Simulated assay, not measured.
Amino acid sequence: MARRNVLITGCSSGIGLALAVKMAKDEQKRFKVYATMRNLAKKEPLEEAAGRSLGKTLEIKQLDVCDEQSIKTCVNSIPDRRIDILVSNAGMGLIGPIECQTIDEMKTVMDTNFFGLVRLLKEILPDMKRRKNGHIVIISSVMGIQGILFNDVYAASKFAVEGFCESLAIQALKFKLQLSLIEPGPVVTEFERKVFEDGMKMDLSAADEETAEMFTNIYLKNYKQIFQSLGQSAEDVAEHTVKIILAENPPFRHQTNTLYTPMTTLKYADPNGDLPIDTFYKMVFHHDKIFSASLNFIKLLRWRSRKSFDLGKPSQ
């Protein structure tokens, strides 16, 4: 099998970094990885993790998904502009009451998470269509299926991605292209830590007292516990992603976290859409002690199997 060119966005940390390194270090050397990031000043962790593969099966390039010229320059620098696998991973998060978020902040999230993908495909999709060969892999989220309290704008951006891809997938089939949405639940990365820290520093003065209390004492209070109990590592998500890429018939959607699957299944169990909303409402406001106890139980089981994670770093 000829070595396939892989372009991955958002490789300065987290899932992008883990995936770039895993594919570059593939024992069968099936991939040539072009690992990209907006700010090359942040490339050192990737260089260290890449080790001997750097300059051989892995090259680091600058690419800003919010800049069309940056995308074009990067793609033009690849021999024959041949990208066999595109992994759209770059993204940003935003949590909190919408009263405390500016429209510009919301636009930035949509511009990165949704329009960033659109810009990539406007540049890369025509070449894939012409060759009638290519695999488009999008790191989406379970929040592209089910919205979560105080993740309104982030969920909206992922819903946009999922709807866009559902439409595009029909056209992709005609050109013999593959399209896969990777849908992690909570992932323990620098990305999530920054989102949490920004939430902790948020000015809540524009919100009413009850909403501010809800965000601080319910959402933020449970944030770490949810990640410690349900969270995956970036390496785990990378492993799932590689398996999808190597699959003979890769699925359109793939959820990486079986612990989270029951929550998203609620969405499909009730055509009216009331079941998941009612369930989450009761879980947060009526059965919070049971919910907390369940998270602790899951955490204990995972600790015993040495798969428990703290927010930011794997447990020893």
Rank of each mutant, 00 (worst) to 15 (best):
G91L: 09
R119Q: 06
I85T: 12
D127S: 15
G116P: 01
S88G: 15
Q101N: 15
A155L: 03
A90K: 10
I138F: 10
V109L: 12
D111P: 00
G93H: 04
E162A: 06
K132C: 13
L120F: 04
D152S: 15
E99A: 14
K122H: 13
N133G: 10
C100I: 03
D111H: 05
T102M: 07
V142K: 01
R119C: 01
G96P: 09
D84P: 03
V153Q: 13
G163K: 08
Q146N: 11
I139R: 10
G163V: 04
T112Y: 03
G144D: 07
E162S: 09
I145D: 03
V153T: 15
H135D: 08
Y154H: 10
L117E: 02
M128G: 13
D127Y: 12
M110G: 06
T108D: 08
A160Y: 14
L117S: 02
R119A: 05
S167M: 01
I136Q: 10
I98V: 15
G163Y: 06
L121D: 04
A90C: 11
V142G: 02
N113V: 00
L117N: 11
F115T: 02
I148Y: 13
N89E: 03
I139S: 10
G91I: 03
I145P: 00
E105Y: 08
R130Y: 08
K129E: 12
N113P: 00
N151T: 06
I136C: 09
K107N: 13
L120N: 06
E166H: 09
L149H: 12
S167R: 00
R82Y: 05
V153C: 12
I136F: 10
I136D: 09
L117W: 03
L125G: 01
N89W: 02
N151D: 10
D111E: 15
C165T: 14
F164D: 01
T112H: 04
E162M: 07
F159L: 00
G163P: 05
M106D: 13
P97Q: 04
G116F: 04
A160W: 14
V137S: 11
I95P: 00
E99W: 08
S140K: 06
C100F: 07
L121G: 06
L149W: 14
R130G: 01
N133L: 12
I138T: 14
G91M: 10
G163Q: 09
P126W: 06
I139H: 11
N133C: 15
R82P: 02
V142C: 14
I138Y: 07
D84L: 03
